[in-house]
Amino acid sequence: MKIVLAPDSFKESMTASQAVAALREGVESVLPDAECIGVPMADGGEGTVDAVVDALGGERITVEVSDPLGRPVPATYGYVADRRLAVVEMASASGLELVAPAERDILRASTFGVGQLIISALDHGAAELLIGIGGSATNDGGVGMLTALGASFTDAEGATLPPGGAALARLQHIDVSGVDPRLADTHIRIASDVTAPLLGTGGASVVFGPQKGAGAEDVEVLEAALTRLVAVTGTAFGHARPDRPGAGAAGGLGFGLMEFLAAECVPGVELIAQTVGLQQSLNGADWVFTGEGSVDAQTMLGKTPFGVARAAALTGARVVIFAGRVAADADVLLANGVAKLVAITEPGTPLDQALRDGPAALTRAAAAVCRTL
């Protein structure tokens, strides 16, 4: 029997690799002769660096960058030398969790630190970048990142704009002549499950701004500022496509990456699966064990367990999803190619205990499932 172990991280409890190890222990305790293939997974959000580095045998590189408010902060990215592949989580440099709720200022939050990570990756020899863009604190259209890469954004008097999305309302000129020339030969792919455009009622400012602390007036300011960015970009380069799916991801970082750096936006779980070779590992598999901290009906909207289930369907393998919490509406997954949903935590367990006992609980749950196979 061949079983592929392809979980995401269980947030605050275990990484994807630790989840693989816990599943493996459970399987081997019941089915010692089973062939177990571990493929740590992610969907472009938290855990993407760990999943790819662990799957491909890369290294973690930590550098000091600017956080969303310009303060120094250590940030880690992954590098796989034999593929010249760098894996960046934008949230490690420009994420919402880096700023305390009382300090959040979406009008001046910047993606400058993301650009610093990219420069470091290029210095290490990267020719390919995989950038996960979930969890941002920013709404600057990627201008901070582009500034770190050498671009210039100035007002009518030629003064460099200060950091943050609000300042883009005064944008008059864009100069990309100073952008690091190595980027012209760098293949950039964005891992994101956000398909929002940059502007409008479904765009970056209106939909995601309030989640980052923007009030109603802030949203209007940011929408007008990004509209100005689009107008000046179109004038400067003859094209600006704010309606492309993913342009509104991470406060418009998707727009900056696609419009200025020719990046390709790909659903996160599909991109990670392709990068770590999930489909090849699934060949000949009888069962696939996947999971993450919580599953519900929204899991079908680009989350790892459903992405793994879709990949497994191509090979005929049956899928079990494990989770700390299985919501009632998660039953919809059973009608979409999933054989079993397994909650690893007993109802009523205190959260801190559930997080602490997660690996052991996952091992026990995997063993229990294997006894029924």
Rank of each mutant, 00 (worst) to 15 (best):
S9G: 13
S13P: 09
A19C: 03
A21C: 02
L23H: 08
L23A: 00
E25L: 13
M41L: 10
T48K: 00
V53S: 02
A55G: 04
T62V: 13
V63G: 02
S66Q: 14
D67P: 12
L69K: 12
R71F: 08
R71W: 05
V73I: 12
P74T: 11
G78H: 07
A93H: 00
G95N: 03
E103W: 05
I106M: 09
T111Q: 03
V114C: 05
I118L: 10
I118R: 01
L122A: 06
L122T: 11
I131D: 07
I133A: 02
S136W: 05
D140M: 03
F153W: 08
T154Q: 08
A156T: 15
L161N: 02
P162C: 09
G165M: 11
G165Y: 04
A166I: 11
Q172E: 12
D175M: 05
L183W: 05
R189V: 11
T201V: 15
T201L: 06
Q211K: 12
Q211A: 11
K212A: 02
K212S: 00
E220T: 15
R228L: 10
L229E: 06
A236E: 14
H239D: 10
H239C: 09
A240K: 08
G248H: 07
G248L: 03
A250L: 05
A250T: 12
F255G: 11
G256F: 07
M258A: 14
V266W: 07
G268E: 04
E270M: 10
A285F: 03
A285Q: 04
E292G: 04
G302S: 05
G302T: 12
K303R: 13
F306I: 04
F306G: 00
G307H: 03
R318V: 03
R325D: 02
A327M: 08
D329A: 07
D331C: 10
T349P: 07
D352P: 10
Q353M: 14
A354Y: 04
L355T: 10
P359W: 01
R364D: 03
R364L: 07
A366P: 08
T372K: 09
